[in-house]
């Protein structure tokens, strides 16, 4: 699965950068969301993907039966997803506020505004 995921992650990164390079504010936001997803998937992929081996222990056992998927990257990605949302909310509101103040959604035209 990892080789296929390599292309999926690559595609997500390419799309996110392309969107962030657009001059429209809305497209920038969409690029940010894609970038956050791409980064999470990247970490998830390179730590090795396993089918049907969640890091859960059955009652009474001390180890997951039959092996396990690495739980540490999962813990990292879990917090990253939630933080990603917080940062996205911040970015979206910031961008909206910038738009309200400057009254311009073309990033190239925001260049010299210092307000």
């Amino acid at each position: 699965m990892e080789p296929l995921m390599a292309f999926v992650v690559g595609g997500l990164f390419a799309a996110s950068i392309y969107m962030m390079l657009r001059r429209s504010l809305v497209k920038l936001v969409i690029g940010l969301i894609l970038l956050s997803n791409a980064a999470n998937l990247l970490i998830f992929t390179v730590s090795g993907m396993q089918r049907g081996l969640p890091p859960l222990i059955a009652p009474g056992d001390t180890l997951p039966a039959g092996g396990w998927a690495d739980p540490l990257p999962q813990a990292l990605v879990l917090t990253a997803i939630v933080i990603g949302f917080g940062v996205l909310a911040f970015a979206v509101v910031l961008i909206h506020r910038a738009y309200v103040v400057v009254k311009e959604d073309d990033l190239e035209k925001m260049r010299s505004t210092d307000t």
């Binding site: 859960l56 009652p59 917090t79």
Partner: peptide, 12 residues
Amino acid sequence: HDEPGGGFIAGL
């Protein structure tokens, strides 16, 4: 703590 879940998911 024992099954899928936890503070993050529950909060969401």
